[in-house]
Design a protein around this nucleic acid. Structure first.
Lengths: 338, 338
DNA sequence: CTGAAAGCGCTTACAG
DNA sequence: CTGAAAGCGCTTACAG
């Protein structure tokens, strides 16, 4: 059976308070006593239990990332950034995967907050409606938003409208008129914003927009942000609108599928993705870069700052995404210079 | 301030035991009382605190995944499989990222086990030496190993020797004699096994092996399992050994880099990767498939079974990896049929 | 169906 | 520097 602080105290001939102090780096323990305690503790493999410590001290040293889907490159990069920061600060990471849909989605989010299994929460790509955000605001719990923003919450996000605008405008400026867009689940907020940016580019260019050129794949798995989603979307776009002459794609992962579709259908048009996941550089995909790792790490820092100082001013950081041109838009520059 | 079971009990005019019962789905509470309690609880946003529940009931409903590096496609897929299974069973996932090296690596692993912040542990790609495994064995804690095995532990792994053997043998059988291997951090156990399989294929084919054809990239970041690692390895291989005529690569992610290196150096030789991550199908990469999602989900099931029944027989599952031929080895079949 | 009470394994003033 | 004791917020026999 696992031993407790009482066992250690008994075997070491001290009180439990002393054992506790040894493990809390409190200095007020004589070197001799400390060694004695450490020795017994080591002999039975003792270490204070996280939950009991949490209850008694109200310090958990844990922050929780709340994500809508696991196993997605975007989250993976963000989690990497979070983890880097956390490790260096001695915190632990819990991950809660919200699986519900509709009302139950919000219920799950609310539930996880209430359970208080962490001292702070990082909401990654959690998109709620205003009522729900307001409701969440009432809980006395530090939350910082990543890939989303709402008044009253600390947040770290990227300007999706601008990112999509820049990509589309670049294509338009290069002389392409029938620029398509591969979208994903349209109820997702980033997608809404990217569509907005796409439209805006047409408006500013005074080029008529054909809404039918916005297509999305045949799958809602992972909200459509999959290779398959991009493949079927591109397939559809080419088959239905053969006049499409360039394409903006909502994510790099979909772009991987779109590239394959073009290859299979023996067609090649300039393509710009979104995210700049690591492989993009290697497959020569032009894209709109989101600084995912940085976002994770900055958000974590923001959260910890908030935890330390409840009263501090709310910080809403919004990055401007950066367009990166590679092989998949070869020739673009040439044309745009004419 | 957050409210506790006492506040709810007081406001609802019942005892704390009753409040507790309401939240524990215990049936022995009258519908009327239950509603009353639920109403007050809802009005103040109350929900039992995870840590206090854990302490009192000794049930945490949490399992912890212990991983050496975050943000790696292999772990991501495995975590996805774990999450699927966990969600459907109502468990929560904690992730612990071991960052130490050498002795401190083991210390961290031991430490996390002792803290007992979870009821069961999933060790993903955690490779220790026999002494360390034996030491771990003494803790009365359910652990299941993924991508590793050791007597006395439940495990789910893939036969790396066989996978590498199959890939290499296929290349050799197709008539290639100077088959290179892109390796990664050589102290990693999967890499050792893959090198073993690679060598075995040469032996069986009675073709002399030139050890210099085993190269690894110039980076140890993520143990070398990166696009960059593959890129620099391939570059090196081509520059130093221009006679290389085919290549087995330790991971798909490195293969992405290797493919790029070939393109940049204007050379093309058959290439087989390892893992079969999702993009591989779309970029036409031949590979040795590891059923990552399944591994995660089966390991989780195994762990939960063990938690329910301490005495059950140890289960060591070892998958046989499957070779999948795609565009990156075009022509192989043709040759091998001659 | 409901309550009083002990206990889970710690931490932390308060004394000394 | 060290100990006795209260308390953290729950659960769970045990009674009734």
């Amino acid at each position: 059976m696992a031993s407790t602080i009482y066992d250690i105290a008994a075997k070491a001939g001290v009180s439990i308070a002393t054992v506790s102090r040894v493990f809390n780096q409190s200095t007020s323990v004589s070197q001799k006593t400390r060694n004695k305690v450490l020795k017994v503790a080591e002999s039975v493999g003792y270490h204070p239990q996280a939950y009991a410590q949490g209850l008694a001290s109200k310090k958990l040293n844990t922050i929780m990332a709340v994500v809508p889907v696991m196993s997605n490159y975007f989250f993976m990069e963000i989690l990497g950034g979070i983890q880097d920061k956390l490790t260096q600060l001695g915190y632990e990471l819990s991950i809660f995967n919200v699986t519900g849909t509709g009302d139950s989605f919000f219920e799950q989010v609310e539930h996880v907050i209430r359970r208080r299994a962490a001292e702070g929460y990082l909401f990654i790509s959690i998109h709620l409606n205003p009522d729900q955000w307001d409701k969440l605001q009432k809980y006395p719990v530090p939350i910082t938003l990543v890939d989303e923003f709402y008044d009253g919450f600390d947040s770290v996000s990227v300007d999706n409208v601008q990112g999509a605008y820049t990509a589309t405008k670049t294509l338009l400026d290069a002389g392409y008129k029938r620029v398509g867009m591969i979208s994903a689940l349209e109820s997702s907020k980033p997608i809404k914003d990217r569509i907005k940016g796409y439209r805006l580019a047409f408006e500013e260019s005074e080029i008529p927009l054909d809404s039918k050129l916005i297509v999305c794949g045949d799958t809602d798995y992972r909200d459509g942000f999959t290779e398959r989603g991009g493949y079927t979307a591109m397939q559809q776009m080419i088959e239905l609108h053969s006049e499409v002459d360039a394409c903006f794609c909502s994510s790099d992962i979909q772009a991987v599928g779109a590239l394959k579709a073009m290859e299979d259908l023996e067609l090649s048009i300039p393509l710009i993705g979104y995210d700049d996941i690591e492989i993009s550089e290697y497959i020569g995909l032009s894209t709109v870069r989101q600084p995912m790792r940085d976002m994770g790490s900055i958000a974590t820092q923001t959260l910890l700052d908030r935890m330390k100082n409840e009263g501090k001013a709310i910080s809403q950081i919004m990055y401007s995404p950066q367009l990166i041109l590679r092989k998949s838009t070869n020739g673009i520059l040439k044309i745009s210079q004419k």
